[in-house]
Every structure is written in C-alpha cells, then in structure tokens.
Design a protein around this nucleic acid. Structure first.
Lengths: 220, 220
DNA sequence: ATGAATGTTTACCACTTGGTAAGTGAAACG
DNA sequence: CGTTTCACTTACCAAGTGGTAAACATTCAT
C-alpha cells in the first residue's frame, strides 16, 4: 500500500524532486517486496505512480541502481522499526517480548518490507552484500544486547548470532508464511494472529529464558 | 544442479517421453526455486536442456501449466524427503531430532526444493492453493503425530499447527537464510552448518520438550 | 513397405522489456 | 525580462517474452 504522499505542487523545486524520488522508492519497495524484482517492470511502477518510465530513469540510470536505492531505504526503515525496541525499558524476557511484538506489528502492517529483505536474499550478489552492510550496525547492537543478557544469566547461553537468526526466522515465518499457515489449517485472520503471537511468545520464552529465571519472567 | 539423466536414445517411445518430461521438470524446479518463476524464461530452460522452447510447450500448453506440474513434483519430492522421518523409530524428542536433521539435509543438498516452496508462496493464488492441497496429507500426519506426543506428555502442550509452523520456519530459516546468517557474521560453511544444527536442536529442545521429560531426552 | 501418430524443430508473431535521444514546459536565476 | 537549468514526456529501439503454425523426422501399427 502506497503511503499518502505530499502534493507535488508544493514547496521548492529541490523539495519536490525529493518528494518524487520518495514516492518512487515507496512504490518500488512495495512492489519489489510483494511481487519480486523481476516481476515488476519499470512501466508497472511508472503507471502506478502516474508518470512515465523515463521519469524513473531520470532519477536513477538503471533499474539495478534503483534497486540499490530501494535497498538502502528498506534497511533504514527496518532499523527505524526495530532499533527502538532495543532501547526500550525493561530487561531480559520483557525486552525480547517487546521486540517480538514489534516484528509482528511490522509483519502485519508492512509485510512488503520483510518480503523485500527475503527477495534481496534470493537475488544474491551485490544486492545481498549491500543490505548486509546496511544492517550491520543494528545487528551488532542486537548481538551485543543478547551477549549482555547471557552474561547476566537472564537468557540461556548460546551463540548470540544464531539466537538472533532463530528468533528472526521463527517470528518472520510465523508472521509472514501465510501459505504455510493455511496449509496447517490456520487462516490468517487478525484474531488468529493474536493467538499465534501468544503461542510464539511462549515458544520463544521456553527456548530462550534461562531456567532459573522462568518463574520471574513468565509470559502472559 | 541438474540430475544425471537417462540417455534419450534408450527404451520405448513412451519411456523416452517420460524421461524428457522428467528432465524438463527437474531443470524447471531447480531454476524456479533458485531464480524465481518470472526470472526464468522458457528459452532459458530450453537452452539449459539442449532443446527448443517449443519442445517444452509441446508437453505443457503454457508456462503456467508447466508450473503446476513442477508444483506437483516438488510436493511429491518434499513428502518423500520428510515423510519417512515420521515413520522412523524412536519417540518424543529423538524423533523431532531426526526430522530436524532431515530438513537440514534437504536444505543443504536440495536448497532449490525449499526455495521453490517459498517462491510459490510468494506467487500466491492458484499456485499456493495447489501446493497446499498437495501437502495436505503430510501436514495431517505431522500434526496428528504432534498431538499424540502432547497427549502422552512428551512434548509441551500447544497448538500443533503453530508448533509445526514454528519448527518449520525456524529450521528452514536457520538452514536457508544464508544472507541473514552472513549479516550476523556466520559464514555458511559445512562446519558452521553442523554447529548451527546443534545449536538449533538445543533451541528447539528447550522450546518443545515438556519440563518433566528434559532429563530423559537431553540433546547431545 | 506404408501410413499414421508422435516428438521436435524452424519460422514466425504480437507484445513487453530495459534503455536512449531528443524535445518541452515551467521554475530559478541573472 | 530573457535564458538557462531542471524534471519530465514523446518517440524510439534492439533484445527478449510467451505462444502459434507448419514443416520434419522418427517410431509404431498394419
């Protein structure tokens, strides 16, 4: 879903240019994330934006360069969505819980954002390197956080990187793998999503929380 | 990687036809699974097979119908790969462990197979319905198995469908999400895969096994 | 042997793809 | 005010896209 955009008839020229580029990036992120890079033509993007394909190619010299710009934008938005959770109040399990809630919120409200990251992984090559580089600071922060929690014995000791991947793909899967959910007889309604989140939290809780802290940090 | 194929100059005509269709399906599954449906043209497939695109269109009237055939084949192969694990010896945790080991083995040896299922989910529509229908018997068996284990108190009680999804996406993620792994500083070598599998098993063990059984079913 | 069925190729076709070149109208600037 | 810069459009293009039609070669049944 395209975000509401500022009217193109206001502001200075530079501002309007930035606004146009923003609109293009937003629509491209949405389309690439839901339909896939190769399945979306520049003409598709253009017609959705009510402009011509050449207008897009004016701002970026090729579709591939546009993709790079979309990658940067997606990484930025992801960091904005998630990074705050690491700074929130609380400790141990309650903080993990807030991160999971955030991922669910993003998966429900911005599924194209998470789908886009997946798409980039599949494309591979330079695109993957770019998103990896873009997310590096966040990943560093997150693993450092996990390590601290382990040091203080609040969550079970294990490889923090793998823990991050496991938690990420578990949550992402439960939140986005709609077809698989359907296959196991779970219709992705709002109500079922709430249930899934609760079940998942208890799943993660059991997996992550150090035994001696279980009683102190029970999931709701 | 295309499998070794029987020479097209042997056997009866019907057999050779079947062999050709098999080769086409194998290459199509590989290509669609790794590059995506829209990123692979019929000409790409044909040239990889050393035939012409029209030869493919002789066996299936359109690319979309070919996709349906590939879906059926992928589902069949998936079931063959996984279903055996449900019939293996052992009970409780040891059986879960054997399923996880199987998924890892498939993810390492046939990444295109798992990638293809993801791709189909993204395409959505009739394609998703088809793969869902194809996998239904297996899913039924798996959830029934989980339910039995819960009834007997060997694994923690929860929604069996969600447990399946969680375990599926966790393992699939840890096994296939190569770029995410790279992002958190884990190079996907053989050695690291073994480590990841072990870590993941302990993660799943903690999450799934009922507390009173933990001592009896410790992960290695 | 011969004719029919079958699997494949050659020859096309209309349409879409990413990308180029040149033109246009309005805003920014002297 | 003129003119230059900028964001964008119209007009193309060569290379591919999925798909059709018909010719062709091989195998099978008679």
């Amino acid at each position: 879903m395209a975000l509401a955009v500022t009217s193109p008839t206001k502001g200075t020229r530079a501002a309007r240019t930035r606004a146009t580029e923003d609109r293009i990036l937003a629509v491209a992120l949405d389309s690439f994330g839901t339909k896939g890079f190769d399945s979306v033509s520049l003409d598709d993007l253009a017609s959705e934006l009510g402009i011509t394909k050449q207008a897009i190619l004016y701002h970026w010299p090729s579709k591939r360069v546009l993709l790079d710009a979309v990658i940067d934008r997606a990484a930025l938005e992801l960091i904005i969505e998630f990074d705050g959770a690491l700074s929130e109040d609380g400790w141990g399990w309650s903080r993990v819980e807030s991160v999971v809630r955030r991922i669910f919120r993003v998966a429900m409200r911005r599924p194209e954002l998470l789908g886009f990251i997946r798409e980039i992984s599949r494309i591979g090559g330079d695109a993957s390197l770019r998103v990896t580089a873009d997310l590096e600071p966040f990943v560093t922060r997150a693993t450092a956080y996990f390590e601290r929690e382990m040091d203080e014995g609040r969550i079970r000791r294990c490889d923090p990187g793998l823990l991050l991947v496991s938690a990420y793909s578990t949550v992402l899967g439960a939140a986005t793998e709609v077809e698989v959910l359907r296959a196991v007889g779970i219709e992705p309604t709002l109500r079922s999503t709430v249930i899934r989140r609760r079940e998942l939290l208890s799943f993660l809780h059991a997996a992550m929380v150090a035994p001696e802290f279980v009683r102190l940090q029970a999931p709701r």
